[in-house]
């Protein structure tokens, strides 16, 4: 439908997702997937301390199990959290530092891993001794992982933190194996990006206004389009989560959403839709962007799927 009417396609989580995407487009990265982390990682650095609340099963599924097809007994795995202590798990090993200083920490680690002299005594409140120890541990890891959730890096140019993480990972691979693990996938953000990419060749924040696909990570962000009143209408889709309401705007808003949605300001049009994986089949990409999960129909619903609703709207145009 966007192709037909010349709309811009974006996702409610794009601001976080684009922190990763910009790094991919600028320098690339070395990354891994869940099963590799679970079975192979002997060192895991978790950036930000909200990972466990954002992804409740992350530790339980990937970090806690210590049996491995590659080791005859339980494997050894060091787990370090880097971020603001109050939000970390109670018994975790935490390197306490403010989120807005993470870029400095990774810059310092890159120096240390490369054996370059660094004139600092402390970086982001962490003693050099601690950082030296961490760099040493990373170099000695056989298969190290750095995990981050782009949503936690909510600050101006948060993508630069992602880039310094990926630069560090890349450097470590000169001598050992190391990989990044970007965490995301909520509200089908990874799914939406994957499909937009393969169908158009460009990621989210691609518009069709001029008859060809045009990608603009900055101008085509939903918040910016609404704030500048550069959009005539907002079509907001949230089939999974009734709590994800459209942003407040004077721009006329159409919502395709869960019937459980409760609005403070009623949209111009509200079309209740069925839930994928409950009322109809579909697909959902997991956070690592590799495994597409089959969503199955479990119950009937009188409501249309988002696809059915959009097709009907398009046919009526």
């Amino acid at each position: 439908m966007a192709n037909r009417i010349g709309a811009i396609v974006d996702h409610m989580n794009s601001t976080a997702l684009s922190r990763n995407l910009l790094v991919l487009q600028d320098s690339g990265w070395i990354v891994t997937t869940f099963a590799e982390v679970r079975s192979r990682a002997d060192f895991v650095l978790i950036v930000g301390t909200e990972t466990n609340s954002r992804f409740p099963r992350f530790a339980e599924r990937l970090i806690d199990p210590l049996d491995s097809p590659f080791s005859d007994g339980p494997m050894q795995r060091s787990v370090v959290y880097l971020g603001a202590r109050p939000k970390a798990p109670a018994d975790a090993r935490v390197l306490d530092c403010p989120t807005n200083k993470l870029g400095e920490v990774f810059g310092a680690l890159r120096c240390l891993v490369a054996n370059r002299p660094l004139q600092a005594v402390r970086v982001a409140g962490l003693d050099m001794e601690i950082l030296n120890g961490l760099a040493d541990e990373m170099r000695k890891a056989k298969y190290g992982v750095v995990a981050w959730a782009a949503a936690d890096l909510d600050q101006p140019h948060g993508e630069l933190i992602v880039q310094s993480i990926c630069g560090l990972v890349s450097d470590l691979n000169e001598t050992t194996r190391f990989a990044g693990l970007p965490l995301g996938g909520n509200d089908a953000d990874v799914t939406a990006n994957q499909v937009t990419l393969w169908q158009t060749g460009l990621p989210l924040r691609t518009g069709f206004g001029r008859g060809v696909p045009e990608y603009d990570a900055y101008h085509f962000g939903t918040d910016r389009l609404l704030a500048g009143r550069n959009a005539d209408v907002l079509l907001w889709i949230s089939a999974f989560d009734p709590l994800r309401l459209p942003p407040e705007t004077d721009v006329p808003t159409i919502v395709l959403g869960s019937p459980a949605m409760r609005f403070t300001k009623a949209p111009a049009v509200f079309i209740p839709v069925a839930t994928p994986g409950l009322h109809h089949a579909g697909h959902f990409f997991r956070s690592d962007g590799v495994m597409a999960i089959r969503l199955r129909k479990l119950a009937d619903s009188p409501l249309p799927s988002v696809a059915e609703a959009l097709t009907a709207i398009e046919q009526a145009l």
Partner: peptide, 26 residues
């Protein structure tokens, strides 16, 4: 799809316009 994500600049140079039958793509 990773290759697509990596190279927006390569796509910008080869745009296929929407037609009655075909969709806009790169």
């Amino acid at each position: 799809n990773i290759a697509r994500a990596l190279l927006p600049e390569d796509h910008r140079a080869d745009l296929l316009a929407r037609t009655e039958l075909t969709r806009a793509c790169c």
